[in-house]
């Protein structure tokens, strides 16, 4: 796992009410079942923008993107300067 992906998971973890460790976040796990609701998703976007210094595109704020960690990471990774792959 790259450092940046690990950093992403740590930011994500802060917005999940039902898990306590990044190891519990499977890439394709349903984040809603882990406690991510739409309002927490807004806070998550703000924290991701601060952590990765990019602007989360409005068009990516969809239920599908926020369904899984992989979905959100794909958006973040696409905006990193060195295009980190998962």
């Amino acid at each position: 796992m790259t450092d940046r992906r690990e950093e992403f998971l740590r930011v994500l973890l802060g917005h999940l009410g039902a898990v306590e460790d990044v190891a519990q976040i499977a890439p394709d796990a349903n984040l809603r079942t882990l406690g991510l609701n739409s309002m927490r998703a807004v806070d998550l976007v703000m924290d991701l923008e601060d952590a990765f210094d990019f602007t989360f595109p409005d068009s990516a704020f969809t239920d599908e993107v926020f369904a899984t960690a992989d979905g959100i990471w794909a958006v973040v990774a696409a905006h990193l300067p060195d295009r980190v792959e998962s």
């Binding site: 039902a18 809603r32 079942t33």
Partner: peptide, 10 residues
């Protein structure tokens, strides 16, 4: 809620 051990959002 889906199950006793599920999140309130599930």
């Amino acid at each position: 809620r889906r199950s006793e051990d599920g999140a309130a959002d599930d």
